[in-house]
Design a protein around this nucleic acid. Structure first.
Lengths: 217, 217, 217, 217
DNA sequence: GATGAATGAGGATTCATTCAT
DNA sequence: CATGAATGAATCCTCATTCAT
């Protein structure tokens, strides 16, 4: 359906669509608006995409691939677990800061269009989990990360916090620098909000037997 | 517009609407579907709600009030900061576990229908921030919580992580007990994922001068 | 359907309806608006009127009867044809000036709701024609009114001019005194706009053989 | 919104709409009926008109322009004031006779849809007044028309009478020839219904001091 | 008689998708 | 390939009318 010659126009439409989706939400966006934003005719969109839903799905697929690549590369760059974690979070924040509309759509439509984007979202979640998993394992070898951790929950802790920071940024006019949040975030992840006196720094952290039944997300 | 005699029917419609919204998303839900689910005629809905948007707004308002009440009460019950935090998170998880469809709609539509639900969402966010703020302040007095914290970020850390846990639960069939996540979550918040060796338990934690410019969220 | 005891409420609703119709037009007016204006419940209206259309029909019937009575009386008061004509036109203008909403509805809805109000309108038209006819006949006896007149057309001349004057008055804020138009109108009707030199005041006005085929109106 | 390529379809829809409006009145007409009459899909109408109201407004605008042109041309053709008046009235009757549905809509909806068609109606009224004004002025120079006339009222006299003739024609099955009314109408306008004996043909017609405060209509 | 909550048919408008050019 | 006019199904909302209280 897509000729190689016109990968340009494909991108052009996809980018336009994301901008429109970010502005009005997927359901409220119309093909005409996207066509206008892309500078093509309504009908042309159907030469590159099966239908309106398809545009969103393709965006999610591309986003997933792009993000995956970027996150793995970020993690590779760090020399130890904590720096890897920092690089990961920095990359996450930087990516979304540099593509605000993509961030808005990704964060906003995931739950609502769950049926459509379930698969890419699962892959994204799995990738995030794998990345975290690797970092945690390394940290545990290094002795910088606790051994009694349930990785699934750690992933949700980090992913949730970062997403929330991004959401706040989106809804507050996106005026401050998002990446500056990376350092304090990592600090909180590593050290928590408690003091040593609060029961930390023991030799035997209360062992938690966590089953790994939780599904990917 | 709303007769007091039929607060019943109001609730009946609102509940039906939330169920439908949870199933198909706000934009994809139709008045007819809601009416059918509620067992009333289409037109009846307009005796109780101004329009379709109004249904969502009223739900957000009610939710905000209900949640606010519940969270403050939860915090009061804890005898120290850490227990208060635990009670808060437990309440949060328990509430959404007991109202899964409400949770789905609340979590899912906030970003997309931002224009509609901006105000209730802001209030909810502010309330959450106030609650966290109080708990943190108490913990700092007690000596169980670090003094060098930027409350806005702590709020996002906790809120984001809890929301992510809820989202995962929603998307994985809601089969396991959500409240069982409260304890490990609090452990992560307090102690972080790092070990003492990772640079914790110092006398002088790196002082962070954080401005409090971030808006509520 | 209408109890004698509550002729009051009947009038109350009818008056309210005319006010609402005058404000928004018949089609755009709702039973609820009329009920509110009348200070009764929606359902009550159906105790006094068959349906919404019936309200308009009854108004036309009442108007026709009332106007008929008033116009005949006005004509009786004049001592000669010209004064009778003056009294008639004065009564016409005075009536509508004193019932502006009634005038608005009557003038405005006649054509549009022709199907509904055909019969009362025909009667009104016939009455007007009869009145004019009588005045003209008298004037011809007196020698003050031309003999070569087609009464149907004279009726349309007078009725059309007066209605147009009323319409203008309605659409220009109804601020000036409508009855002051009676005298100049009669002058135009009697004397026309021409001068003697324009071919008038001949002994033999061009005889016009007019068939009286035109229907009532 | 309107493609130039299909001025045809625009006219096709407009004509269909006028027919439907004439049949059932503007408020009672539906887009579906118009679409069916025009032989297009409902949605197609919105490619050529903003909404239902817009159809009526455009009709009024077109009618105003068309009528204006035609009336001025008619007046030019007459060689003296009286003939000009005759040509004007003939044109008026002929126009509406040749477009009966247009006449019905124009005459019928003006008052009810006043809000929508106020502007075109004002223009039409002003045009009519200007035409009459010019004819009267000429006649006064020629000595064939009285000098003591209030043009605003003369305009209402003529316009009202002609409209009433048209209305009668509309409501009586439109079977006779409307233009045949032009001559007797002019006769009545010029000579009035009175005889010389009725006080006419004086040297000093009672001077009427009329203010020209009346708004256009 | 009076009420007004409930009904549901009806109507304007939108928009994803198609297809002739 | 590209276009954009045309389609008509789908949806929100209104409101005349009914009927249980």
């Amino acid at each position: 359906m897509v000729s190689k010659r016109n990968a340009d126009k494909y991108q052009q439409i996809l980018t336009a669509a994301i901008n429109v989706f970010a502005e009005r939400g997927f359901s409220q966006s119309t093909i005409s608006q996207i066509a206008q934003e892309a500078g093509v005719a309504d009908g042309t969109i159907y030469l590159y995409f099966k239908n309106k839903d398809d545009i969103l799905v393709r965006f999610y697929e591309a986003m997933t691939e792009h993000v995956s690549e970027r996150f793995w590369k970020a993690v590779e760059e760090g020399k130890d677990a904590i720096e890897k974690l920092y690089k990961l979070i920095y990359a996450h924040l930087d990516l979304f800061q540099s593509q605000p509309t993509g961030a808005i759509v990704y964060q906003g439509e995931t739950h609502l269009q769950w049926r459509l984007v379930q698969e890419p979202t699962r892959q994204m979640s799995k990738m995030y989990r794998d990345v975290i998993s690797q970092v945690v394992a390394l940290g545990q070898q290094e002795g910088t990360i606790r051994k009694d951790l349930y990785v699934g929950l750690v992933k949700r802790l980090i992913n949730g916090a970062v997403d929330e920071v991004i959401n706040t940024w989106i809804h507050t006019g996106r005026d401050h620098d998002l990446t500056s949040m990376a350092e304090p975030l990592v600090d909180l992840f590593i050290n928590g909000i408690g003091t040593p006196a609060s029961g930390k720094c023991k030799d035997n952290p209360s062992p938690q037997t966590m089953d790994e039944t939780n599904a990917v997300t």
